[in-house]
Every structure is written in C-alpha cells, then in structure tokens.
C-alpha cells in the first residue's frame, strides 16, 4: 500500500499520506525530501530543533509528544524562557505539528481526533 519516495539513489516506502513506513529509512536527506512534500522548501535550524525533539521523544515513548510539550521544549531549546506559540510551529510546518512536523521527522502519522 502507498508509494515510493525517491531520495537520490535511495527509494523509501511511504504510505498513502506520504509518511515513511520504516523508522530506520529516515536520514537527513529523506527529511529534506519529505519537507518538500509539505511545502517546506528548506529545513532551517529552527525546523531541525523541532524535528530532533520529535525523534528523541518518539524513541523513548513510541508516540509523538503532545502539542504543549512540543511548544515548551522548542522554546527551551531555542534558549527562550517560555514556550513558542502554536502559530510558530504552523509557520514552520504549514500543515501543523501532527502532520507536517511528524512527517518530516519520520514518525508515523498521529491518528484519532487530532
């Protein structure tokens, strides 16, 4: 089921929504290719802060972090004393934290009423 995302020489299986199927398929090049499908032309330092946190959290908890955790942790990692806004994440990833950011980070798509 789904499609194949071509990243240079590499072929990565993705599902119908373009999320990669295997955790280990992910690398920086794949992230960049995934970003393009999400209308993110270039992954900046700010993007990577979010992406790296999502991957770390997922490694530990097998799920993406809850929105408020994302906002707070991103703020912290940017050296601010407060959380970033929801809008900040949407500006980085136009389809939002659950879809855009998770996709680029190589996480499975969050399901349910999200």
């Amino acid at each position: 089921m789904g499609d194949v995302l071509e990243v240079g020489e590499k072929k990565v299986d993705v599902d119908e929504d373009g999320f990669i199927q295997k955790w280990d398929d992910w690398d920086e090049d794949v992230a960049n290719a995934l970003a393009k499908t999400e209308d993110v032309n270039e992954l900046t330092k700010e993007h990577w802060v979010v992406v790296n946190y999502l991957r770390e959290y997922y490694t530990q908890y097998k799920i993406a972090p809850m929105i408020r955790l994302v906002l707070k942790e991103t703020g912290k990692r940017l050296g601010q004393d407060k959380a970033v806004s929801n809008k900040y994440i949407y500006d980085l990833f136009p389809s939002g934290p659950a879809k855009g950011a998770c996709k680029v980070a190589g996480l499975p798509k969050p399901t349910g009423c999200v």
Binding site: I63, T111, C113
Partner: peptide, 18 residues
Amino acid sequence: GNNLGMPGPALRNTLDFF
C-alpha cells in the same frame, strides 16, 4: 487502549507535564 496509540508511559509523561 486509545485512538492515538499512546502507550501508558507516554500518557504519564504527558500528565506530569500538566
């Protein structure tokens, strides 16, 4: 046990945050 597929430890971590 839930639509998200959120395991227990992640739920506890989330509640700790709140």
